[in-house]
Amino acid sequence: MQALELDIKELIISALALEDITPDDIDAEQPLFVKGLGLDSIDALELGLALQRRYGVTVTADSEETRRHFGSVQALAAFVAAQRTR
């Protein structure tokens, strides 16, 4: 799972063009939105598209379940891993 978390961190950085941030700067357990990494709704859309392109996962817009999946890098990694096994 750590390799997947690292890959997702790198995807976040590249998809959102986060300058001056490295994967080591992102705590896998920290929130991605508001506090923590401080992403916003536009970032969520871009990240959702990037996840879909890279991993082939489908993300439903504006659902409570999606908000949980986007809660942290750790949660995203668990979501992607679960989708891959289907």
Rank of each mutant, 00 (worst) to 15 (best):
M1K: 01
A3F: 13
L4K: 01
L4N: 01
L4H: 03
L6Y: 12
L6P: 00
L6H: 10
L6A: 12
K9Y: 15
K9D: 11
E10K: 15
E10C: 15
L11E: 04
L11H: 05
I12A: 07
I12Y: 08
I12G: 03
I13T: 05
S14G: 00
S14C: 03
S14P: 02
A17H: 10
L18K: 04
E19H: 11
D20Y: 14
D20V: 07
I21W: 10
T22A: 15
T22Y: 07
P23Q: 04
P23H: 05
D24W: 04
D24L: 09
D25S: 14
D25G: 13
I26E: 00
D27P: 00
A28G: 04
A28K: 02
A28P: 13
E29Q: 05
Q30V: 05
Q30G: 02
Q30Y: 10
P31N: 04
L32F: 08
L32I: 01
L32R: 00
F33E: 00
F33T: 00
K35L: 12
K35S: 15
G36M: 05
G36R: 02
L37G: 08
L37Q: 05
G38Q: 03
L39S: 02
L39D: 03
D40W: 13
D40V: 10
S41Q: 01
S41W: 05
I42S: 10
L47C: 04
A50L: 02
L51H: 09
L51E: 06
Q52A: 14
Q52M: 13
Q52V: 03
R53S: 14
R53A: 14
R54P: 02
R54W: 04
Y55K: 06
Y55V: 12
G56Y: 11
T58H: 10
T58K: 12
V59K: 01
V59Y: 05
V59P: 04
T60A: 15
A61C: 00
A61Y: 08
D62A: 14
D62T: 02
S63H: 08
E64M: 03
E64S: 06
T66G: 10
T66V: 11
T66I: 09
R67F: 15
R67S: 11
R68S: 09
R68V: 13
G71Y: 02
G71R: 00
S72I: 07
S72P: 07
Q74R: 14
A75D: 13
A75N: 14
A75Y: 06
A77T: 04
A77D: 10
A77C: 10
A77L: 09
A77N: 06
A78M: 07
A78N: 08
F79V: 03
F79T: 02
F79N: 02
A81F: 12
A82H: 12
A82E: 15
Q83F: 11
R84L: 11
T85D: 08
T85V: 12
R86K: 14
R86Y: 13
R86N: 13
R86F: 15
